[in-house]
């Protein structure tokens, strides 16, 4: 006789805490076969608003850490994920209907993705920055700095954990804080990852995860004046041009949708996309 299991209540992750949606709404998450799996929180625009506040207040702390430190924090996520990989494999199999080997492969890739990006944190500035030989007595450097608060529509298809990590990790590397709209259909990996993040060294508010309807919530983020950038990587099925138009109001940096298994593929460009190049001129005088 099998033991009666205890199902988990899947909640949002905002400012390091796990609130239910302020709206009280939930939506059904089903298995690949259509069976009921869970009631995930269905975030409202007010949850999105709260997430922006949390993300904004976390910017100066997170951006202010050294690259070395950020790298270790991101690597720590990989460590924790490795220890809990079985849970993620099981969820991916149930939600995405993936085979065990495919689910294992996805989780492994996701862990390796964290490691890959973690290593960039104290290097990308050397690659994308520059020392500028100006014609005059000036010391002139260009360095990349985080753009600030980035709203991300995570890839919506299968490969939900890998897609999520692939979109979130590069934004974090540079010191941005993020609000992520998880895959609407496959949200469990994201929610479980929030539990990993909560017990990792990532400060509260650096990653904020909303489940629910990206179509409903993204417009609020796209038009939010305190969001600096918008990653539409998983927004291909939304009216994403309208989102980009809304983002133009405050000149947000926008990355367009990507489809297929290569969506949010690992790249330095994804890190650089949410950085701002700051050029500093110093006078050089001996006398």
């Amino acid at each position: 006789m099998s033991r009666l299991t205890i199902p988990k209540t899947y909640k949002l992750y905002i400012g390091g805490k796990f609130p239910r949606s302020e709206s009280g709404r939930v939506y059904e998450v089903a298995t690949r076969g259509g069976d009921f799996l869970a009631n995930a929180a269905k975030a409202s625009r007010k949850d999105a608003r709260d997430a922006v506040v949390a993300a904004r207040s976390a910017v100066s702390g997170w951006a202010g850490t050294s690259g070395y430190n950020r790298g270790q924090v991101l690597y720590r996520i990989a460590e924790l994920l490795e220890g809990r990989s079985a849970q993620f494999v099981a969820e991916i199999m149930r939600v995405e209907g993936a085979s065990e080997s495919a689910a294992v492969a996805q989780v492994d890739k996701a862990i390796d993705r964290w490691v890959w990006y973690a290593g960039w944190s104290d290097k990308y500035a050397q690659v994308t920055g520059s020392s500028n030989p100006v014609a005059g007595p000036y010391f002139n450097l260009s360095v990349p700095e985080p753009t600030g608060v980035v709203a991300i529509v995570a890839p919506q298809g299968e490969g939900s954990l890998l897609g999520f990590v692939g979109a979130v990790a590069p934004a974090l590397v540079a010191g941005n804080t993020v609000i992520v709209l998880a895959s609407e259909r496959y949200p469990l990996s994201a929610i479980s990852l929030s539990e990993v993040l909560a017990t990792s060294d990532v400060p509260g508010g650096v990653v904020n995860i909303l489940t629910g309807s990206p179509a409903e919530i993204t417009p609020w983020l796209a038009s939010h004046a305190d969001v600096n950038a918008l990653d539409l990587v998983g927004a291909g099925a939304l009216e994403w041009v309208d989102l980009q138009i809304a983002a133009a109001e405050t000149l947000k940096r926008v990355l367009p949708p990507e489809e297929g298994p290569d969506a949010a593929a690992p790249s330095l460009d994804r890190i650089a996309a949410f950085t701002e190049t700051k050029t500093v001129w110093h006078t050089k005088g001996l006398l």
């Binding site: 005059g136 002139n140 700051k278 050029t279 500093v280």
Partner: peptide, 17 residues
């Protein structure tokens, strides 16, 4: 700010982003 001038201002150079 994208350009910061320390003890100078309004300097420009093609090598400088």
């Amino acid at each position: 700010a994208g350009v910061v001038w320390a003890n100078t201002f309004n300097r420009f150079d093609p090598a400088s982003p």
